[in-house]
Design a protein around this nucleic acid. Structure first.
Length: 734
RNA sequence: GGGCACUUGGCGCAGUUGGUUAGCGCGACUGGUUUACAUCCAGUAGGUCAGGGGUUCAAAUCCCUUAGUGCCCACCA
């Protein structure tokens, strides 16, 4: 029997979660016969707490997991957290600086890492608590961390394999340097922000024949060439000439070169080439064997020139140079333009291209596919012995349909991204992360899985891009590089569900790593969900201060209401609008379920013995048209919900069961049945009771993936024989 | 500059492979309240599916085009 009054989620949710955990059914090992179904949880960053975006991820994945568990699959949902290298380090640095005024260098590597680990542990605990509050049915016994020992072994192994294959190389290149975070970052971590800038047109010196234009005059101290288009009649005669002059008291030597990449229409049609401080100029310099001259250092300060400019920050240096140009009468034009400035995703620092020796993953080099663990299996269009590049691997598995991306149009975006992909810079000058597994001794270099005990070896001080370890996530969590039972059973995983904002950062890298290292796909389906927006359609973000804490909503309205609100009325992959109205509407729905269940349970009669009624056991002949009607609609609903869940149409599935339960079952059937329950026709009354009970039970099952808590509470109060948990009841129609 | 989408009643959205009166939530209006539920029920109003063109026996759904909006990538020095 259910207690009177409205449904109060607070009374039940925690108890129910404990009941589930105690049952052990989150762990797939309890199901010995089912076919496997697996999802690895995209590990939340240990940078604090979960936000509504995480909540959405948990809801969708838990729906898939619960649905498949009920369908009898050996279902694994594997939890974990991400050390998120730069993100976590910069957050802790900021906290320490704000509190103690100290930098990481003041503390030293060891002490600083201790502080981060403490912070990460606290975040982890909060995150786990929040995750459980959402009702997520994760197998906590398999929990992983991207920076724990098992994952470190996987990372080192992966690095070694790639190094030996020539895919990882150390190169002197112009990289994206973040002066604020004091580290390099990859192309994907660069965010362009529009800004006002001044576009200066000038000559280096009075004797120099060509004018050039730039928004960054301070870099011109490092120019080693001026490039013009080969067909530009204005400048043809100068090509090949070399000039020496003093530019703001710095000795500069430039050569005039011709290069196709120069647009004669833009600016003066001549480009000052600064190989050390521009990606593109560096490439041009490579083509023409130009020397490279670094004029800016890691702190974004000028390192050449006279006393007035040496040691100055770039903004100050710019002013000094402009003043000098004016003074010398060299400045021709100043224009205000809008410019995209490269900034670092995590720290917001302005990215300074600098020449540095870094580790890279070569995405274009052809490698011969090797037989690896499970290799014989799997890729459709690539066999052992084929020569392929990482780019081709990434492209192949999506093109072939082995990996399906939902919504589908993201496949095009994915291909477009691969086309523009450059080598991936994987080394970072930060301390929190997997140390690069490379040791040096004099001229020797050793790459391995373990620290060499021998004396005199020194490990590379850098750490790896966090996405390097995340890229291994689907299989590092299952025991790789060992050939474990879990790896055999649960890999490839079935679905990778995440926000579309990390399609490139993460999803693409998982595909790269997995196809290359395992010779199989990491997952069959990529389901990308949208962003959460508020009632005014604004993106929810901390900086905008419009984000809501999922725990707060759970506290107010219940986890079930929040879950349902997140999938209700939101098309596949679309952004989710979260308004209080929406959650309250679903809270009302929960209450409706509660009350209708109360009504049914109160009307089953003294001796309700037709436990676990199957549809064929219902006395079909004596049913009236209402009975037949509701049963037929129930069947349609079961078919519809099932089909929509199979097709990742969560909103449609949710709406269908909502509609059926509230309007067909409650408003029509229950209202009509009230008369029969009062009548003296005992046989007819019994039929009505059977159907009430039967339909309710089926509805609870259909609703369970969406609203697990309330449905389980009610289930626990049903007069079923031998019942355990609704969580493992059979899905209707199975 | 290149690419990808979106545009459906007042608001927010659904409508997968083209096929009977285009659905839902919120809101509005009118009534009801008899074995759960006022966090309720019944009913009403409101959309020629952005504009134009095409394919088809048949289009919100496919194609072309115009306009508006949003996103991604590249980045002009």
């Amino acid at each position: 029997m259910l207690p009177p009054g409205p449904y109060n989620p607070k009374e039940h949710e925690e108890k129910i979660y404990q009941l589930w955990e105690k049952s052990g059914y989150f762990n797939p090992d309890k199901n010995e016969t089912g076919k496997s179904y697996s999802i690895v949880l995209p590990p939340p960053n240990v940078t604090g707490t979960l936000h509504v975006g995480h909540a959405l991820m948990l809801v969708i994945e838990d729906i898939l997991i619960r649905y498949h568990r009920m369908k009898g699959f050996k279902t694994l949902w594997l939890p974990g957290t991400d050390h998120a290298a730069i993100a976590t380090q910069s957050k802790v640095e900021k906290i320490i600086y704000d509190k103690e005024g100290k930098s990481r260098y003041d503390l030293g590597r060891e002490e600083f890492l201790k502080r981060i680990e403490k912070f990460a542990q606290d975040s982890h605990d909060t995150i786990v608590h929040q995750t459980k509050s959402m009702g997520a049915s994760l197998d906590w016994s398999r929990e992983a961390y991207t920076l724990d020992q098992a994952r470190n072994r996987a990372v080192n192994t992966a690095f070694k394999i790639m190094y030996n294959d020539g895919l990882i190389y150390q190169g002197d290149r112009v990289v994206n340097w973040d002066p604020k975070g004091q580290t390099t970052i990859s192309d994907d971590e660069v965010i362009y922000k529009e800004r006002e800038a001044i576009f200066y047109t000038f000559k280096y010196s009075r004797d120099f024949p060509i004018a050039i234009a730039t928004t960054r005059p301070e870099t011109k101290l490092g120019d080693t060439a001026v490039a013009v288009h080969p067909n530009d009649e204005r400048y043809k005669k100068y090509v090949g000439q070399e000039f020496d002059f003093e530019f703001c008291r710095e000795q500069v030597h430039v050569k005039i070169i011709a290069d196709e990449s120069v647009d004669p229409e833009f600016g003066t049609g001549a480009v000052g080439i600064t190989p050390a401080h521009s990606q593109i100029d560096w490439e041009i310099a490579q083509r023409h064997q130009l020397p490279l001259k670094q004029v800016i250092d890691e702190n974004a300060r000028i390192i050449v020139g006279g006393q007035d400019i040496k040691g100055k920050k770039i903004n100050e240096a710019r002013e000094i140079i402009v003043a000098w140009l004016k003074n010398e009468g060299l400045l021709i034009k100043e224009e205000n333009i809008k410019q995209n400035v490269a900034t670092a995703e995590r720290t917001g620092g302005i990215v300074e291209p600098l020449p540095k020796k870094q580790w890279f993953v070569d995405v274009n080099a052809k490698i011969k596919m090797q037989p690896r663990i499970k290799y014989e299996a799997k890729l459709k269009n690539i066999k052992v012995g084929d020569e392929v590049s990482l780019k081709e691997l990434m492209r192949s598995v999506v093109k072939s349909g082995e990996i399906k991306i939902i919504p589908e149009h993201f496949e095009k975006i994915y291909f477009h991204w691969i086309d523009n992909l450059h080598d991936w810079c994987i080394s970072r000058q930060i301390w929190y992360g997997h140390r690069i597994p490379v040791w040096y001794k004099d001229e020797e270099i050793y790459v391995g899985e373990k620290v060499s005990e021998e004396e005199g070896w020194e490990q590379d001080p850098d750490t790896l891009d966090t996405w390097f370890s995340s890229g291994l996530w689907t299989f590092s969590t299952l025991g790789w590089p060992d050939e474990t039972k879990d790896l055999k059973t649960f890999h490839p995983t079935d679905v990778l569900e995440t926000g579309y904002d990390i399609l490139f950062f993460w999803v693409a890298r998982m595909i790269l790593m997995t196809t290359y290292l395992l010779g199989e796909i990491p997952f069959r389906v990529v389901y990308l969900h949208g962003l959460i927006r508020d009632a005014e359609r604004q993106k929810m973000s901390k900086s905008k201060d419009n984000s809501v804490d999922p725990l707060h909503i759970i506290d107010e309205e219940g986890a079930d209401a929040l879950r349902m609100a997140m999938v209700f009325g939101t098309g596949q992959g679309n952004d989710v609008v979260m308004s209080p109205d929406k959650v309250i509407a679903q809270k009302k729905f929960a209450n409706k379920i509660w009350n209708a269940s109360k009504f049914v349970l109160n009307n089953l009669g003294e001796k309700f013995e037709f436990m676990v009624v199957a549809i064929h056991e219902l006395s079909l002949q004596n049913q009236n048209s209402d009975d037949k009607n509701i049963l037929e609609k129930l069947n349609q609903t079961i078919a519809g919900v099932t089909k929509n869940l199979d097709n990742f149409m969560f909103h449609e599935a949710a709406q269908e069961i909502y509609q059926f339960f509230w309007h067909d079952f409650c408003d029509v059937y229950i209202e009509k049945v009230k008369l029969r329950l009062n009548s003296n026709d005992a046989a007819d009354k019994k039929i009505a009771q059977e159907i009430l009970y039967f339909v309710l039970l089926q509805c609870l099952k259909l609703l369970h993936p969406f609203m697990p808590f309330i449905t389980e509470v009610i289930y626990q109060n049903l007069p079923e024989k031998n019942k355990e948990n609704l969580m493992i009841e059979n899905w209707p129609g199975v």
